[in-house]
Simulated scan of single mutants.
Amino acid sequence: MTSVITRATVGDRVRAGALLLGAVLQVVAGGLGGSGAFGLSVGVVARENTTVVMPVPAAFSIWGLVYAGLLVLAVRQVLPGQPQRAVHRATGWWLVASAVFNAGWILAFSAQAVVLAQVIIVSLLVVLAVSLARLTALPAEGAGDRLMLHGPVALYAGWVSVATVVGAATTGTFLGAPGDGGVATVLGALVLLVTGAIASGVVARTAGAVPYAASVVWALGAIVVMGPPLAVTVAALVAMLAVVGVAARRVLSAPPGRRVAAAFG
């Protein structure tokens, strides 16, 4: 059954325009935060509050892919026949909120308002989780949805899932907790194991299982490459294997003709 409704309402067009504006806002905020044009760069603030679960700096290049995916999504949903679709009505304003929260997180973190930034990134994770859940309830209608809707949102949600955990550790260091040492290592390892378990559960049930898994594995792998203590390394590797295993099982257990749908739909 198609989700296209005959006419787009004024509200549909306003929502579509707001999402396109938000997608552009993310790119601008990301440029400001990455360059240090506003306050300190995000990388500098992170290095000043380093922890045992800090990813290697190159890992943050995934933001470019995330921004590109959301921009493609936003452009597509303003095209004729798209604004009035049920899937955009179900997810559009949540994705607008994600763009606002992401821009706010960048600006807050660059201004060294680390606690506020953590509150914002938790809010970002919540709205992305709602968006992904709503996409899961409305299966993709073809390759366009899989590549330009489910894929970008799932990739974004997976990265933010781990970034929220890393941010929590950074916030703790900012507030005076030790960033390394025995206690930090044990807590870091436990948190990564829990993160892997939760991410595996999401991969087993959600739309965009493979993009979500890919960004989680990217983030966890970047923590390993950074060279943390052995316990943290082992925990990250175990979490990665769990996520990859669940994603592979979900795709390979589907009939051959349905494997792309299982991966992205």
Results as ranks from 00 to 15, higher is better:
Gln77Pro: 04
Gly158Pro: 07
Val130Pro: 05
Gly176Asn: 01
Ala74Leu: 04
Ala143Trp: 08
Ile106Tyr: 03
Gly92Leu: 01
Leu128Gly: 04
Gly188Glu: 01
Phe101His: 09
Val165Gly: 01
Tyr156Arg: 02
Ala207Val: 12
Ser123Thr: 06
Ala137Asp: 14
Thr173Tyr: 04
Thr136Ile: 02
Val127Ile: 10
Thr171Ser: 13
Ala199Tyr: 08
Pro178Trp: 07
Ala86Met: 12
Ala113Ile: 10
Asn102Leu: 05
Gly158Phe: 07
Trp93Lys: 02
Gln112Phe: 13
Ala184Lys: 03
Ala213Asp: 00
Thr91Glu: 13
Gly208Phe: 02
Ile198His: 09
Ala209Asn: 07
Val194Lys: 14
Pro178Gln: 12
Leu128Asn: 05
Trp94Val: 06
Ala163Lys: 00
Ala177His: 10
Pro80Arg: 09
Pro83Thr: 05
Trp93Asp: 03
Val78Ile: 12
Trp105Val: 07
His88Asn: 15
Ala199Pro: 03
Ala157Gln: 08
Gly172Asn: 00
Glu141Ile: 04
Val202Pro: 05
Ala199Ile: 11
Gly201Arg: 06
Arg205His: 15
Gly208Ala: 07
Pro83Ser: 08
Leu124Gly: 01
Ser131Pro: 00
Gly142Ala: 08
Val203Tyr: 06
Pro80Met: 10
Gly167Gln: 06
Gly188Val: 05
Gly142Val: 10
Leu73Glu: 10
Val165Leu: 15
Ser215His: 07
Asp145Pro: 09
Phe174Pro: 06
Ser200Pro: 02
Val165Gln: 03
Ser200Gly: 10
Ala129Met: 15
Asp145Leu: 09
Leu70Tyr: 02
Ser215Tyr: 04
Leu73Met: 10
Val127Ala: 13
Phe101Ile: 06
Ala157Gly: 11
Phe174Gly: 04
Ala103Lys: 06
Val153Lys: 03
Gly176Glu: 02
Ser215Arg: 01
Arg85Met: 00
Leu190Gly: 13
Val162Ser: 09
Ser161Leu: 14
Ala143Val: 14
Leu95Val: 01
Ala213Gln: 01
Val127Glu: 09
Ala140Glu: 08
Gln112Trp: 15
Pro139Arg: 03
Ile121Tyr: 05
Val183Gly: 01
Leu190Arg: 11
Pro83Asp: 09
Gly196Val: 12
Ile121Met: 08
Ala74Gln: 05
Leu95Arg: 11
Val96Lys: 00
Ala204Cys: 08
Thr206His: 03
Gly167Met: 04
Ala169Cys: 13
Arg76Met: 07
Val96Phe: 02
Val203Asn: 03
Arg89Asn: 05
Leu155Met: 11
Ser98Gly: 07
Pro178Val: 07
Val153Gly: 00
Gly151Ala: 14
Gly179Phe: 13
Val162Tyr: 04
Trp94Ile: 02
Ser98Gln: 02
Ala143Lys: 11
Phe174Ser: 04
Pro139Glu: 02
Phe109Thr: 03
Trp93Val: 02
Ser215Leu: 08
Val78Lys: 03
Gln82Pro: 03
Ala103Trp: 00
Leu73Lys: 08
Leu192His: 12
Ser200Cys: 12
Ser123Lys: 11
Val87Cys: 09
Val160Trp: 12
Arg89Phe: 07
Leu125Phe: 13
Thr206Asn: 11
Trp105Gln: 00
